[in-house]
Amino acid sequence: MLPVLRGSPDVTNGEDSPPTAQARRPGQAGRTRPAAGRRTVLWAALALTTALLVLALLSLLVGTGDAPAGRALAYLLGVPGARADAQLQLAVGDVRMPRTFAALVVGAGLGTAGALLQAVTRNPLAETGLLGVNAGAAAGVVTGLTWAGVTSAYGMLGWALAGGLAASAVVLLIAASGRAAGSPLRLVLAGSALGATFHGATAYVLLGSRSTFDEYRYWTIGSLAGVDASAVRAMAPVVGVGLLCALLTARPVSALALGDDAARALGHHPGRVRLAAVGAVTLLTGAAVALAGPIAFLGLLAPYAARALAGPRIVAQLLLSALVAADVTLAADVLARVVMRPWETPVSVLLALLGGPLLIWIARTDRGTLTGGAA
């Protein structure tokens, strides 16, 4: 009797052996894993959205102003007596609401920008300050304070946004020139070099102007305290445009993960795709930095957590990164109001304290690495 080889047809009954039958049905396993991945993303998005709503409500009930949580809830529910209370209107309507929306805008902007920047540069350590946007915004604020006579927070907002956009424009011009136009290495080098130049120029101006330094230090510390509704209304459309651009570039950026040659074969121009993605990152980062100051680390942490949940899918990474960053920003801002009452702790400090251990855990589990994939 001839032996039956593993993986070959069974000569006794003419049917395929289980290994061969399984090999002839590869689509079954292939369909199961993406379905499970989509379910994970959906459940993660649902959990993060629920947490976001809870944190937003907590942000409205706790913190700034002498308004107890019960009275603040009555104000939010529209109770006539609470609505007529001028103190509640000031604490909840004029201070806490704009601050809560600012945390959502800043978190979503920096989280999306970080995820897109890491994908387009293929660098899991890339963060939003890498393109010189933060340094450009700081230089813009110093310029406005020193030579333009800016005294209002709204004026600093405009100068910060203008400085960030100008710095990114210079980086894009440098990266778009030469034979390796639009390459990730050229973008990173141009942004790092320009950021160092702006940092040096900013420090030089601050050393010669005590009054400018006193005003600048409140902005550069990275905080949502003092944000008003007009500033949020001014920056929210910029972040909205940036989010739309990020979604439009997600699939071309996903094709870049396969390599430039494969992306060209699919009809994409790698240099143009990278420049378009960096433009979206600039809008998101510039608006967020102008609104809350240079909050570092958030654009590095959120994409790691998003990749651990979404895997290589770029669109899912952008969505989850925005939600994670918004949750973390809101949680840090709420804690900033209560941990050292009656004073406040800067949000950027709490983000570093909260996010550092989490980032170390993600790095140790090897779940945040960049991998190729589809949108």
Rank of each mutant, 00 (worst) to 15 (best):
T50A: 13
A82H: 04
M97V: 09
L58R: 14
G93A: 10
V92E: 09
A91W: 10
R99Q: 14
G111N: 13
V120N: 05
V92P: 09
R122K: 12
N123C: 15
L52I: 06
L88Y: 11
A84E: 02
L77Q: 10
R99A: 14
L73W: 05
G93I: 09
A113F: 01
L117V: 13
L57S: 11
A119D: 05
Q118P: 02
L52D: 07
T121D: 07
T49K: 02
A86L: 01
A103G: 03
Q89T: 14
R71L: 03
L77M: 11
L76G: 02
A56W: 06
L48G: 00
G70D: 13
A103T: 01
G111R: 09
M97S: 00
A51W: 08
A74R: 15
G93Q: 10
A91E: 14
N123M: 15
V62S: 03
Q87K: 02
L46R: 06
G114E: 05
L55R: 07
T112E: 00
L110A: 14
D85G: 09
T100I: 08
D85P: 08
A47C: 12
L55V: 03
L57A: 12
A56G: 14
T49F: 08
L46I: 13
D66C: 02
R83H: 10
Q89E: 12
L53K: 09
V105R: 10
R71W: 01
V54G: 12
L55C: 01
T64M: 03
G93N: 11
L104H: 04
A82V: 06
G70P: 06
D66M: 04
L46P: 04
T64I: 04
V120S: 07
V95W: 14
Q118Y: 03
L48I: 02
G107N: 10
A67L: 00
G109M: 05
G70W: 12
T121I: 05
A102G: 15
P98R: 07
Q87D: 10
V106F: 14
T112S: 02
V105C: 09
A86H: 04
A84S: 02
L60K: 07
G114S: 11
T121Y: 05
L53D: 00
A102W: 13
D94F: 15
A56S: 13
L76W: 01
S59W: 01
L117H: 09
T100H: 07
L90H: 14
G81W: 02
R122A: 13
L110H: 12
A51G: 15
A82T: 05
L48P: 00
P80G: 04
A69I: 03
A74H: 08
L90C: 09
L104Q: 04
L104P: 03
T112I: 00
G111T: 13
L110C: 12
Y75E: 00
V105N: 09
P98W: 07
G109T: 06
S59T: 03
G111A: 12
L57T: 14
R99E: 15
G70A: 13
D85R: 04
L77V: 05
L55G: 03
L77P: 06
R71A: 06
L53I: 06
Q89P: 04
L104M: 09
L76D: 03
A56D: 07
P68K: 14
A102P: 15
L90N: 13
A91F: 12
A86T: 04
L53H: 08
A119F: 01
V120G: 05
Q87V: 03
F101R: 03
L61E: 06
G78R: 01
